[in-house]
């Protein structure tokens, strides 16, 4: 297999009519058999034509090209097409290259001043960031202060509203009070003109009771009779007796002086005491029991309504 440059040289000689007939025949058989060789040969032809158009052929090749290759009108037409094609391709490539060169020179300039440019860039970016952060902080702080100010203003307004409301309530209360005072005064004046109001002690005073539990065993003959020392402000004396008369429904209490004069008498219902006893309680105005010795006779009222004596009690009333 031939080397590429030898193959190209052979093809060029073929195309320029400088190849012996035997080699020409062999080359043509090769390209008829081998598709790849055919494609290579076609490209070598294009390269030869383009080289002629661009003026890159050697003088001898150029002379042979014009004498042999361009002898064919088809080849002349091909050369004309190639001339326009390479011009268009070079123009198109130059435009792209110009843009690329601009970008490349820009890139070189950038690389040359890369450090300083980056330094400036970083400094600028850092300054901008600093300003941005400071601005943001100021904005937030101002917003916060404005918010607090609004809150204080609202609280102040609320407090003022409450004060106003309380002042109004106080004024209303004062007015009501004055109205009531004047009403009371008017009523007092009206009342003073007719009936005196009762004094406070009289209105609230209750009767004072002196209690004494009597024992039936104590009689007039014993040495120490039951004594009732009744206070001076006592209103009534309550005399209480225990009895075992379970069936009695009513009792009769009769108080006489030892001389036989009846002081007080009353029928009384017993009050329940313990299981087998009852308490008879007789409440006697103190005015009926002046200082002296007394006999209390307790009688149970039987089923026929007649009193049956149960016990007698002896007691003495002395002063304070």
């Amino acid at each position: 297999m031939m080397k590429p440059d030898i193959q190209e040289n052979l093809v060029r000689r073929y195309l320029l009519g400088d190849l012996p007939e035997s080699d020409t025949n062999e080359l043509e058989i090769q390209i008829l058999r081998d598709d790849e060789k055919f494609e290579e040969m076609w490209e070598i032809e294009n390269r030869l034509v383009d080289g002629y158009v661009r003026g890159t052929l050697s003088a001898s090749d150029q002379e042979r090209f014009e004498r042999h290759y361009q002898a064919s009108p088809v080849h002349r037409q091909r050369v004309a097409v190639a001339k326009n094609l390479v011009e268009e391709a070079d123009r198109s490539g130059a435009a792209v290259a110009h843009v690329s060169a601009k970008e490349s020179s820009g890139a070189r300039l950038f690389e040359k001043f890369n450090f300083s440019f980056l330094s400036w860039q970083f400094a600028t970016v850092a300054a901008m960031l600093l300003f941005a952060v400071a601005g943001l902080w100021l904005f937030l702080d101002r917003s916060r202060l404005r918010h607090e100010q609004e809150q204080l203003r609202a609280e102040s307004q609320s407090r003022q509203d409450r004060e106003d409301a309380l002042s109004q309530q106080l004024a209303n209360a004062k007015a009501e009070s004055q109205k009531l005072e004047s009403e009371i005064e008017r009523l007092r004046v009206e009342r003073n003109g007719s009936v005196q109001p009762p004094t406070q002690p009289e209105l609230t005073q209750r009767p004072t009771i002196y209690s004494l539990l009597l024992s039936p065993m104590l009689m007039r003959s014993s040495d120490s009779p039951q004594t009732a020392r009744i206070p001076s402000q006592t209103d009534q004396v309550r005399l209480q007796m225990r009895v075992d008369q379970e069936n009695a429904r009513r009792f009769q209490v009769s108080v006489r002086t030892v001389e036989g004069r009846q002081v007080w008498e009353q029928q009384i219902k017993p009050r329940a005491g313990r299981a087998t006893t009852s308490i008879i309680s007789a409440q006697i105005p103190v005015s009926r029991l002046p200082v002296g010795d007394y006999i209390l006779t307790l009688s149970a009222i039987n089923s026929t309504g007649q009193p049956e004596e149960v016990n007698r009690y002896f007691f003495r009333v002395i002063g304070q």
Binding site: G17, E28, M41, W42, E45, S72
Partner: peptide, 14 residues
Amino acid sequence: KLVKIFDWRGVRFP
């Protein structure tokens, strides 16, 4: 391929 061979040979109507 024959067309191109005639072309390269400089024939007017390959």
